[in-house]
């Protein structure tokens, strides 16, 4: 297990990077997905159609292609992320990190949108009617009555979306981001005889993160069951 005794900092740093990718794109995906679903179920026809097309197109595109678009094509259109320069300890968050966050967010938000939409559809129509009957506007009805209940009903599918996101962060490896899989590749080269334990150790890292997310999802589900 030389790869761990000599390189446990590299191991932890790489998972710290994975975790940051997950947290930042996760939060942004939840925000963007909520906006998208508001468009899709809202009263404005143009936004409904636009939201529908966005979800259909982005969701149908392989994540690698979305990444490639922002890494290689977007700079030609003047979309660059060179201004991102954040350093935490020895870990650098630069334009590679920004591209990964943008690609993961745009991609994952479509799945968040659909998970939330399934939740919204599960809220009885009477809830919206009662909200409108006391004078709440569309925005008030959504934010006060529909979305809080939709979030509850969406916890299981949202957890699946976030778990998929955790593992999708590994696609960033192809585009030069030094996250966990990138580190795993380095270690399998440097410690060729220890490939099996290396793979298992990195798999374990992902399993731990997924486990924590599942734990919170289950906890939320139980917590909200009474209400």
């Amino acid at each position: 297990m030389d790869f761990l005794t000599n390189g446990h900092n590299a191991y932890l740093e790489s998972f710290f990077y994975t975790l940051m990718l997950f947290l930042v794109s996760g939060v942004l995906s939840l925000v963007l997905g909520t906006i998208l679903v508001a468009c899709r179920v809202g009263p404005v026809a143009v936004l409904r159609v636009a939201g529908g097309w966005y979800v259909t197109i982005v969701r149908s595109t392989p994540l690698v292609v979305v990444f490639a678009l922002f890494q290689f094509a977007a700079p030609m259109l003047g979309i660059r992320f060179g201004w991102v320069q954040i350093h935490i300890g020895t870990v650098d968050f630069t334009s590679f990190f920004a591209v990964a966050v943008v690609a993961l967010t745009l991609y994952t938000s479509t799945f968040v949108c659909e998970a939330l939409r399934s939740g919204i559809n599960s809220v009885p129509l009477g809830q919206a009617e009662a909200a409108r009957a006391i004078g709440l506007t569309f925005g008030g009805t959504m934010s006060q009555v529909i979305l809080p209940q939709a979030f509850r009903a969406s916890v299981p599918p949202l957890a699946s979306v976030l778990i998929a996101l955790i593992k999708n962060t590994s696609v960033a490896y192809i585009f030069g981001v030094g996250e966990a899989v990138a580190q795993m590749r380095i270690m399998t080269n440097n410690y060729a005889s220890e490939r099996v334990p290396i793979f298992l150790t990195f798999a374990a890292g992902y399993i731990v993160i997924v486990f924590v997310v599942s734990f919170f999802a289950n906890h939320l589900e139980k917590h909200w069951r009474t209400a």
Binding site: E129, A130, G135, G140, V145, P148, W224
Partner: peptide, 19 residues
Amino acid sequence: AGLRAEVGMVFQSFNLFAH
């Protein structure tokens, strides 16, 4: 919305906000 605030409505299925 302003008008609806002036009109109280009671439904067959109560429709209390469940959360």
